[in-house]
């Protein structure tokens, strides 16, 4: 029953308020025109041309689908980066995705070298009988909502504002690392994840967080710190979480960690052990302030 698709176009890192208005418009258009709603995004498998990601690809896709979109087209950057703007519209959007309507923000770029802009998009779509909708940038507190702004806020620990702009709490789902659990040496187990440098790193220090295991959210305390590595890089950024009222094995999974409040920056002479003592205090606060209704 393929009558064609109504596609939201973008990278959609963060799936923030601006992205949500584009996705909502796309879903509304689909309903009105009897089309299948869809979203286009992409990922970098090798050479990266963008600033660090706010969300992992799985989290990005999860949030896009949560906005009511039925399907996601997600090629690798390599698959689309050599298409000219015209080829992108004709071969990819019309040909592969069966687009009958497209919707994007006014700063959307596409095609090799980002040569295509919304004016070119509208031209090529008109030629093919595809409806195009371009939305102005979403604004909050007088400023446009952007991934750059959100990345800065996360990196500086200003998570309440970041979460407001994201539309829901900032969450990372990274694979749990085995071993080197300093937590177990001081009596309580911690779940250890590593931030790749392709992702935006939260401010270092102790955070009030929540962790989702097997579909259930638990209050937690997380330490973001840096650790000497065994490979050629000097530093890796680690995310070590103590999950309240939970015992079990997390190795081999990628539990979602939601960042709710930045409690204490790392002090100048913090050792990893001092950091972990703070985690105990943070865990108490986390239990007291736990509100699962804000977590999705």
């Amino acid at each position: 029953m393929m009558s064609g698709t109504s596609i939201a176009l973008g990278y959609f890192d963060g799936v923030h308020l601006g992205h949500r208005s584009i996705l909502k418009q796309t879903v509304d258009i689909a309903k009105g025109a009897g089309l299948q709603s869809a979203a286009f995004t992409f990922y970098f498998d090798t050479h990266r041309t963008k600033a660090p990601d706010i969300l992992t690809l799985t989290e990005r896709k999860r949030r896009i689908l949560q906005q009511g979109v039925a399907q996601i087209f997600c090629p690798s950057f390599a698959e689309i980066s050599s298409l000219s703007p015209q080829q992108f519209v004709r071969e990819f959007l019309a040909g592969q995705c069966k687009a009958k309507a497209v919707c994007c923000g006014e700063n959307f770029r596409f095609g090799a070298g980002g040569a295509g802009d919304v004016h070119m998009l509208q031209c090529f779509c008109d030629e093919l009988g595809i409806q195009s909708y371009v939305l102005p940038l979403c604004r909050q507190d007088g400023l446009s909502v952007s991934a750059t702004r959100i990345r800065s806020l996360i990196g500086a620990g200003e998570i309440q504002q970041a979460n407001t702009l994201l539309g829901q709490p900032y969450v990372v789902d990274l694979p749990v690392q085995h071993g080197k659990q300093l937590g177990s040496s001081i009596g309580f187990p911690t779940v250890n994840q590593i931030y790749p440098d392709t992702m935006q790193q939260p401010a270092q220090g102790v955070w009030r967080t929540a962790v989702q295991i097997d579909g259930v959210w638990y209050p937690a305390a997380t330490g973001i710190g840096s650790r000497p590595t065994v490979n050629q890089n000097a530093i890796s950024v680690t995310c070590e979480s103590f999950i309240c009222n939970w015992q079990g094995y997390a190795y081999g999974t990628s539990p979602r960690v939601a960042f709710l409040e930045y409690l204490w920056p790392v002090r100048r002479y913090d050792s990893l052990q001092e950091l972990q003592q703070c985690i105990g205090q943070a865990a108490q606060l986390s239990c007291q302030r736990f509100d699962p209704t804000i977590l999705q």
Partner: peptide, 20 residues
């Protein structure tokens, strides 16, 4: 940005490991 930044402590530690 802060993402690219290292504290003096991290820089000294990197030097000690020969990874400056």
């Amino acid at each position: 940005t802060l993402q690219n930044a290292f504290t003096l402590q991290q820089i000294v530690q990197a030097k000690e490991q020969g990874k400056l």
